[in-house]
Nucleic acid binder design. Structure first.
Length: 768
DNA sequence: CAGTGAGCGAGCTTCCGCTTGACTT
């Protein structure tokens, strides 16, 4: 018999709380939700009967639930301590129902921080389960099920099987598709930006250098040239100097979203990777909970951080701050993400754990440090033969404050404006130019989203929760809607005019534009699904949809409106739209007519086919059979041209014959290849082009592959072989591969030894 | 693993939010 049983959501939390509570308390965890809507019939919802939900304990939860039941039977008092938010309240209610506790007397408690005082305070002040809050969760859950499970089947019928739609994922895809189209439509414009290096000294070129920019940009090279000629004969004078003090404040401590952004920008982590590493740190007690939307720090954390700052950097670097959470729809059930023990400046663990901890430590400590104080100097410089002015700005840090520890990164890539100090000048002082440069600058479109910047955008729109950001990003990639890719970019010539010693010289420079790294690119199927949803379910993919239903969930939580009524208002028209769409709308294939074949006059089209995007010449209405070719990677239905489509039909082609066998070159799933005697050889990336490769080169590649094959076999015992693979030697038998025990000499293996290794490996597999 | 694009039909896919392992190489 246990005196007191406390149920929390997370096992790591259970462990720490048990320590504080002592012997009379046992603390166990529910591992999150324990029940969900069934998938078996009617979506788990009886829409005819006031949306009565049909809940079940999912298979993977039965073990946890039976353990909870057992513990509940043995306990005298039960305290449900799930998180203090909508989902947490629902978990408490499901627990009470499943464990057959009396709803009116079940003790519901919440902790705001994990300290002895906070926990015993909570135990002393139990409340009952808030059914209004529970009902707002039921409305949220049921609405999401209705949206997801009624629209997805429409996509299976009208677009392609296995697709999905949902309140969160479909908006994420829409953001990406719309940004991509803005980028397609973007026409870069160029202008000339004029910068000048002035000096304060008449004679010595190196003295008192001031970097300044002209107040005007020039539309073309001619205008820039004209201006530089003016510059060459102009006199210059300091027209004004202003010195303004300024301060900068530290960023608030990490939430899930800001942690994902900074770990991407500073460490190059994907959002899934960030969460996995943070989970490890959390489980080993090094950081607080990593799925949170709160920037709040506990009193204990504030006090500890202050101590660390004073002892490391001194009293004047400390400034205790509490940050308000501004995020839309934040529920603040947890603290911000922070070191569990701020006095641990570093932790043990693997490299990634150390790096992420370091980032969290710095961000937390910096948030409790003093503002940085700077002095910003602006100088304006007059010309005596033009109304154009030059302006220079410089910044001096008077007190570094939090910058000593941490600076937040930004998504903008051009960080070329480093801080620089302007030499002392006075109004009326003459200046002399060293060199004046006019360089061509192109405008660029809004950047493509990264995983992290998409999370940021979703959070701003109040769409998704800390526990779902990473899974949502995975889902839209798994469905094929978007793909995370690099692009090499393209070369572009820019013109540079330089005035030096009274002469203007013009040069060209090559710059790379459109280079992308780990960006999210919408794919054809993502664009087709998005357009279908925007056409037919505009309400659901509206950027404000979530915010609007959230307002109603809040009203339900306050007891102002009934959850079933809210659902009915939404569902009746929504369901009608679903039926209408099923009945009346055509299949959507994203078809585009590109034009006519220049020789045969047949129509050339592209569309989404059964196996992906396809180009087609002719159609089955004519007697001629239509011809098909798959689009290659990086080509989109939306942007492919007639010429590009026709080009696809040039492959596969026959290069010629060797020893009576045909040599064919083509592009397959894994890139360009050569087929000879029934075997495939990949062409080297970036070296060979399948459209121009010669038969001589093809034979060379085939020969190289044959040589490699020979080296691959170390020992050959018939059905058992010892082979050389990517990760070193291994044993292969009946298409199964086996690792060699450490220290084995592959060349000396006998057939018997191989059999033994295989048997041993099979045994350990079965026993586990 | 380098192909496929006729049509039919059975049986499957799918949501968002809360939590972690259970698997494999």
């Amino acid at each position: 018999m246990i005196e007191n049983l406390v149920i929390v959501e997370s096992p790591a939390k259970a462990k720490t709380i048990e320590k504080f509570l002592g012997k009379d308390f046992r603390v166990i965890s529910s591992f999150g939700h324990i029940r969900d809507l069934t998938k078996k019939k009617n979506l788990g919802i009886d829409v005819e009967n006031d949306f009565a939900p049909d809940y079940e304990v999912p298979k993977e939860k039965t073990k946890v639930v039976s353990e909870l039941r057992k513990a509940a039977l043995e306990a005298k008092n039960i305290w449900i301590a799930s998180d203090e938010d909508r989902e947490g309240e629902a978990i408490a209610w499901h627990l009470a129902v499943v464990l057959k506790l009396d709803l009116s007397t079940t003790k519901r408690i919440v902790f705001h921080e994990i300290t002895k005082d906070a926990i015993s305070g909570a135990i002393d002040n139990p409340r009952s389960i808030d059914m209004n809050l529970v009902n707002s969760q039921q409305a949220r859950r049921i609405l999401d099920r209705l949206v997801g499970f009624e629209i997805s089947p429409v996509l299976w019928k009208k677009v392609q099987p296995s697709l999905s739609a949902g309140r969160v994922q479909s908006v994420a895809v829409r953001l990406l598709v719309e940004r991509e189209r803005e980028i397609f439509a973007f026409k870069p414009e160029s202008s000339f930006r004029v910068t000048s290096l002035f000096r304060t000294d008449d004679k010595i070129k190196e003295n008192g250098i001031i970097r300044a920019e002209a107040s005007k940009r020039f539309p073309d090279e001619k205008e820039a040239q004209k201006f530089l000629e003016l510059c060459s004969t102009s006199g210059y004078e300091v027209a004004g100097v202003t010195v303004k003090p300024g301060t900068r404040s530290p960023a608030p401590p990490f939430t899930t979203s800001t942690l994902q952004q900074e770990a991407y920008r500073k460490l190059g982590f994907s959002v899934a990777q960030t969460m996995a590493v943070a989970q490890k740190l959390y489980e080993s007690g090094k950081i607080t909970y990593m799925r949170t939307d709160s920037t709040n720090l506990s009193k204990l954390a504030l006090v500890k951080s202050r101590e660390v700052i004073i002892s490391e950097y001194g009293e004047k670097y400390s400034k205790t701050r509490q940050f308000k959470t501004r995020t839309k729809g934040a529920q603040e059930a947890h603290e911000a993400i922070r070191p569990a023990y701020p006095d641990n400046q570093s932790v043990s663990g693997n490299q990634n754990e150390k790096k992420l901890y370091d980032l969290i430590w710095k961000r937390t400590i910096a948030s409790q440090m003093a503002d940085a104080v700077m002095e910003k100097t602006t100088i304006s410089i007059d010309m005596n033969n033009s109304s154009v002015k030059f302006n220079a700005t410089g910044e001096v840090i008077k007190f570094d404050g939090f910058l000593k520890v941490y600076t937040e990164s930004s998504d903008q890539e051009n960080n070329d404006e480093e801080r620089y100090v302007i030499p002392p000048v006075k109004k009326g002082m003459p200046l002399y130019y060293n060199v004046v440069t006019a360089s061509q600058k192109f405008t660029s479109p809004l950047p493509r989203y990264t995983e992290a910047s998409l999370v940021k955008k979703l959070e701003e729109l109040g769409i998704g929760r800390p526990s779902t950001y990473a899974p949502t990003i995975s889902t839209i990639q798994n469905r094929g809607y978007v793909s995370r890719e690099d692009r090499p970019g393209e070369k572009r010539q820019i013109r540079i005019l330089a005035l030096d010693g009274g002469k203007v010289t013009t040069t060209s420079r090559t710059e790379i534009t459109g280079r992308e790294k780990a960006k999210l690119f919408p794919q054809d199927i993502g664009m087709i699904v998005n357009d279908f949803l925007v056409e037919n379910f505009s309400e659901i993919v509206d950027y404000n949809f979530t915010a609007e239903v959230e307002e109603q969930f809040d009203e339900i939580a306050l007891g102002n409106i009934k959850w079933t009524g809210m659902l009915k208002k939404f569902y009746v028209p929504f369901h009608k739209t679903v039926e209408n769409t099923l009945e009346k709308k055509e299949r959507k294939t994203g078809i585009r007519v590109l034009g006519k074949h220049p020789e045969t006059g047949e129509s050339v089209t592209v569309r989404m086919g059964r196996f992906g995007p396809v180009a087609q010449i002719g159609n089955s209405e004519n007697d001629n059979k239509p011809r098909f070719a798959s689009l290659s990677k990086n080509q989109l239905l939306e942007t492919i041209t007639l010429d590009e489509a026709l080009n696809l039909f040039r492959l596969p082609r026959t290069l010629g014959f060797h020893e009576g066998e045909e040599i064919i070159v083509g592009i397959g799933r894994f890139g360009p290849y050569i087929r000879y005697k029934g075997k495939f050889v990949s062409l080297k990336k970036g070296v060979d082009d399948p459209y121009t490769v010669t038969i001589e080169r093809a034979l060379e590649v085939i020969h190289e592959k044959a040589e490699d094959e020979k080296k691959k076999v170390i020992r050959d015992f018939g059905d058992i072989m010892v082979l050389n693979g990517r990760y070193g030697p291994y044993i292969s038998k009946e298409k199964q591969n086996y690792r060699l025990p450490k220290g084995t000499e592959a060349e000396k293996l006998t057939a018997d030894e191989c059999t033994r290794i295989i048997e041993k490996s099979n045994k350990t597999k079965k026993s586990s």
